[in-house]
């Protein structure tokens, strides 16, 4: 039976290889960063909560103090790429589509054949298999140097830098908030504000709360655990028996509406204004509000109608 451990081992080995490649290029900061990531994937279970906490702090330390060098690795030239793009045409998209296709088919297949994979984690396992298949297909078709995929992966991750782990970090921040009882406080406040047992009131508070909290934190990932612990799970899912998948999925998207309206989400809203040399650094946010507000209303209505039948 294939379990999640299999996926962790693969991811751990991948980051381990990135570590070796970084060390070879004498980028010690990057090498240490990938070594820690690899360690957490391979031995996270043995490290215990305290060990993992120290590890996370070390990752933040390396990234935060700017010890990671950025991208700048040798790749093909733009002209070479243009020639290949023209020659291979839209077929270039095919290997990229192997991954989602395998993930989707694998999920459905593993459901039909229980015992092959851990039933709780089928999608992630299918995804890992998809990545391996796609890499094999690329290797056969494009015939790059066998190290090339890993060099390219390192190039991409170095460019993205520690933003690659930022979502997980923000999610943990949200979890810490939730553990520290912020969720209960918010929940208590909201509980008083909503007329007793009003479903519409609770849905409104959840959707608007997700958007507002996202605007403050700059990221829906941090808002989600707090608002869900405060309102989503206790009120909408338990008290009113809402469908958890719908409440959470559309709740998260309500948060995304908030992301469109806040300068705190700098990489989406402020950086492009700078890239496009706009005079008003909030111009992108201004262009987005007109879509974000009606869409937020639609999301709240969708939760209300879809998650609570009858």
């Amino acid at each position: 039976m294939i379990t999640l451990a299999f996926v962790y081992v693969i991811a751990g080995l991948f980051f381990g290889l990135l570590c070796v490649l970084s060390a070879r290029a004498t980028r010690w900061g990057n090498a240490a960063f990938y070594a820690l990531l690899s360690l957490s994937m391979l031995a996270g279970n043995q490290l215990g909560d305290f060990g993992n906490g120290v590890l996370a702090l070390a990752l933040v330390g390396i990234a935060g103090f700017g010890l990671m060098a950025k991208g700048g690795q040798v790749s093909t030239t733009p002209a070479e790429r243009q020639v290949e793009a023209d020659r291979r045409g839209n077929a270039l998209f095919v290997p990229a589509l192997i991954i989602p296709a395998t993930a989707l088919l694998g999920t459905l297949l593993f459901k039909q054949l229980p015992g092959l994979a851990d039933p709780k984690q089928v999608t992630i396992i299918a995804l890992a298999i998809g990545v391996i298949l796609a890499l094999l297909a690329c290797q056969l078709w494009l015939r790059p140097n066998p190290i090339a995929p890993f060099e390219a992966g390192r190039g991409l991750l170095d460019t993205v830098g520690w933003a690659a782990v930022l979502p997980q970090m923000l999610a943990s921040l949200g979890a810490v908030f939730a553990l520290a009882g912020v969720g209960d406080v918010v929940g208590g406040l909201v509980g008083q504000a909503i007329p007793n047992g009003s479903l519409l009131g609770a849905v409104l508070a959840f959707g608007l709360g997700m958007a507002l909290f996202t605007m403050i934190m700059g990221n829906a990932f941090a808002a989600f655990p707090v608002m869900s612990a405060a309102i989503g799970v206790p009120l909408l899912i338990h008290a009113h028996h809402g469908n958890p998948a719908i409440v959470c999925a559309i709740g998260m998207l309500s948060g995304f509406c908030g992301t469109l309206m806040t300068p705190m989400a700098a990489n989406f809203n402020i950086v492009p204004a700078a890239l496009l040399e706009l005079k008003d650094q909030n111009a992108v946010i201004r262009a987005q509000i007109g879509t974000a507000l009606p869409l937020l209303a639609v999301n709240i209505a969708l939760i209300y109608w879809l998650a609570f039948p009858g």
């Binding site: 790749s75 093909t76 733009p78 790429r81 243009q82 020639v83 290949e84 793009a85 023209d86 291979r88 045409g89 839209n90 270039l92 998209f93 290997p95 990229a96 991954i99 990545v131 796609a134 890499l135 690329c138 494009l142 790059p144 090339a148 995929p149 060099e151 390219a152 992966g153 190039g155 991409l156």
Partner: peptide, 18 residues
């Protein structure tokens, strides 16, 4: 994985498409 395809012109192709 996406990195390899980019070396072989994935972004350029996306641009042509747009």
């Amino acid at each position: 994985m996406i990195g390899v395809l980019e070396r072989h012109g994935l972004q350029e192709r996306a641009r042509t498409l747009i």
